[in-house]
Amino acid sequence: MIQVQHEDFHVDALYKRLLQRNKTGAVVMFVGLVRQFTDQPEAECRFELEHYPGMTERNLQTIVDKAKLRWPLLDVCVVHRVGRLSVDDQIVFVGVSAAHRAEAFQACDYIMDYLKSRAAFWKKESHGTDSQWVAANSNDDKSLERWSE
């Protein structure tokens, strides 16, 4: 399941969706949150995510398909929010189920690394009257290096 949506998501419901009776030995989940991104605690931080409908979902599907080729996964669930978010709001859920923990951990990490660098999302951070579009992070690209074959 891959979803891009404005609405918040319920981690418990997504977890239950990943379970496959008598097969699931491990579920690994990652939930990303909006954090305070300025040193000025009194400044109200806002976060805005935009995407290109259709293209973003295809990017995510490609990432998930590649993970399924690398590891024997039972199921994968990716939910990414768009729109305006505030500090402590949930942004992204990546969940992976597998028979064993090693592949579940690796696949979840792989999907998040590629999602951060290759999915078509644009982020704008605002605090007070200042706002700026977030540039690509070189650390995200470095994280991808460990997955090269």
Score class of each variant (00 low, 15 high):
residue 99 A to E: 15
residue 141 D to V: 11
residue 19 L to A: 08
residue 146 R to Y: 01
residue 129 T to V: 11
residue 39 D to F: 01
residue 76 V to E: 06
residue 129 T to N: 12
residue 53 P to T: 06
residue 143 S to K: 14
residue 125 E to H: 11
residue 112 M to N: 05
residue 67 A to G: 06
residue 55 M to Y: 06
residue 66 K to S: 12
residue 28 V to F: 10
residue 125 E to I: 10
residue 59 N to S: 12
residue 6 H to L: 11
residue 50 E to S: 13
residue 64 V to A: 09
residue 66 K to A: 14
residue 42 E to P: 00
residue 123 K to F: 09
residue 146 R to W: 01
residue 72 P to Q: 13
residue 140 D to L: 02
residue 50 E to I: 00
residue 143 S to E: 14
residue 125 E to V: 10
residue 108 C to W: 06
residue 108 C to G: 05
residue 31 V to C: 07
residue 14 L to T: 03
residue 57 E to W: 04
residue 39 D to P: 03
residue 66 K to M: 07
residue 104 A to W: 09
residue 130 D to L: 13
residue 1 M to L: 04
residue 30 F to K: 02
residue 143 S to Y: 01
residue 12 D to H: 11
residue 121 F to K: 06
residue 43 A to Q: 15
residue 64 V to P: 08
residue 56 T to V: 04
residue 5 Q to W: 01
residue 125 E to F: 08
residue 83 G to P: 06
residue 74 L to D: 05
residue 63 I to P: 05
residue 86 S to F: 07
residue 17 R to E: 15
residue 81 R to C: 03
residue 138 S to T: 14
residue 132 Q to L: 12
residue 144 L to Q: 12
residue 84 R to Y: 00
residue 85 L to R: 07
residue 130 D to E: 13
residue 134 V to C: 07
residue 14 L to W: 02
residue 35 R to N: 05
residue 95 G to P: 11
residue 8 D to I: 02
residue 99 A to M: 03
residue 62 T to D: 10
residue 142 K to N: 11
residue 19 L to Y: 15
residue 24 T to A: 04
residue 93 F to P: 01
residue 40 Q to C: 00
residue 100 H to W: 06
residue 120 A to Y: 02
residue 93 F to D: 01
residue 20 Q to N: 02
residue 117 S to P: 02
residue 107 A to P: 07
residue 123 K to C: 03
residue 133 W to L: 08
residue 144 L to G: 13
residue 141 D to Q: 15
residue 38 T to L: 01
residue 67 A to C: 09
residue 117 S to E: 11
residue 129 T to L: 09
residue 99 A to W: 00
residue 120 A to Q: 11
residue 82 V to F: 05
residue 99 A to K: 12
residue 88 D to M: 09
residue 122 W to N: 05
residue 75 D to V: 02
residue 52 Y to Q: 10
residue 120 A to P: 00
residue 80 H to E: 01
residue 74 L to F: 04
residue 121 F to N: 05
residue 45 C to Y: 01
residue 24 T to C: 05
residue 3 Q to H: 04
residue 115 L to C: 09
residue 137 N to P: 02
residue 44 E to T: 15
residue 13 A to T: 13
residue 95 G to F: 05
residue 54 G to N: 08
residue 112 M to C: 12
residue 54 G to L: 06
residue 38 T to S: 15
residue 45 C to L: 01
residue 135 A to E: 15
residue 122 W to K: 10
residue 24 T to F: 03
residue 41 P to E: 12
residue 106 Q to N: 14
residue 77 C to K: 04
residue 94 V to Q: 06
residue 113 D to V: 09
residue 138 S to E: 15
residue 112 M to S: 07
residue 12 D to I: 03
residue 59 N to K: 12
residue 73 L to H: 06
residue 15 Y to T: 11
residue 98 A to Q: 08
residue 140 D to T: 09
residue 66 K to I: 00
residue 148 S to W: 02
residue 119 A to G: 05
residue 72 P to E: 13
residue 143 S to P: 00
residue 91 I to W: 02
residue 99 A to C: 10
residue 126 S to H: 08
residue 106 Q to G: 09
residue 47 F to P: 02
